[in-house]
């Protein structure tokens, strides 16, 4: 694949729950609300399906920022999934911060299926923040680079 842009383009992985945030992203799409192309969405059934390993893996493979989006507290399709996710991520992000992955590189956001505007705003803000922070080299596994 050819290089399209020589300037720095951060890579952002967004985990979105199927019921709220993925639908919110769809709404952002159908409302034509743009956000940077380097945000890549991975669909999970619920935010509680996001294993901390997935986030570590993303950083290892060179992601510059990871964001997890779920239903608003109290609105989880599976009743309580997002509460588990919130606790896990609080612990994980603290640990990552300790390891030198700045807290700003990780984020949890609640986006409902009706919040296309919020989805696009959050992604734009997050991408801008990651641009400021620059490349993440702390956890990147250089052996994975071709």
């Amino acid at each position: 694949m050819q290089e399209i842009n020589k300037e720095y383009q951060p890579l952002i992985v967004a985990f979105c729950c199927n019921w709220c945030s993925y639908a919110g992203a769809d709404l952002a799409g159908s409302s034509r609300l743009s956000y940077p192309a380097n945000v890549k969405i991975i669909r999970v059934p619920c935010s509680c399906r996001v294993n901390p390993m997935f986030i570590l893996k993303a950083f290892q493979r060179g992601a510059d920022g990871v964001i997890m989006c779920g239903c608003h507290p109290g609105d989880c399709h599976y009743t309580t999934g997002n509460y588990y996710a919130r606790r896990r991520m609080t612990l994980l992000f603290d640990m990552l911060d300790y390891l030198g992955i700045e807290k700003e590189r990780t984020r949890v956001e609640w986006v409902s299926a009706a919040e296309g505007v919020k989805f696009s705003n959050v992604m734009n803000e997050f991408a801008a923040k990651i641009c400021e922070l620059g490349e993440n080299k702390r956890l990147e596994d250089l052996r994975c680079k071709e």
Partner: peptide, 27 residues
């Protein structure tokens, strides 16, 4: 929902259709 898959300390539980391996491959 998959809550159990992340909570399982031994990694015995997996979610069909959204297995840990599959999501890892996606990442």
């Amino acid at each position: 929902c998959g809550a159990c898959t992340v909570a399982c300390p031994s990694g015995a539980i997996d979610l069909k259709g959204f297995t840990t391996k599959q999501i890892m491959a996606e990442v």
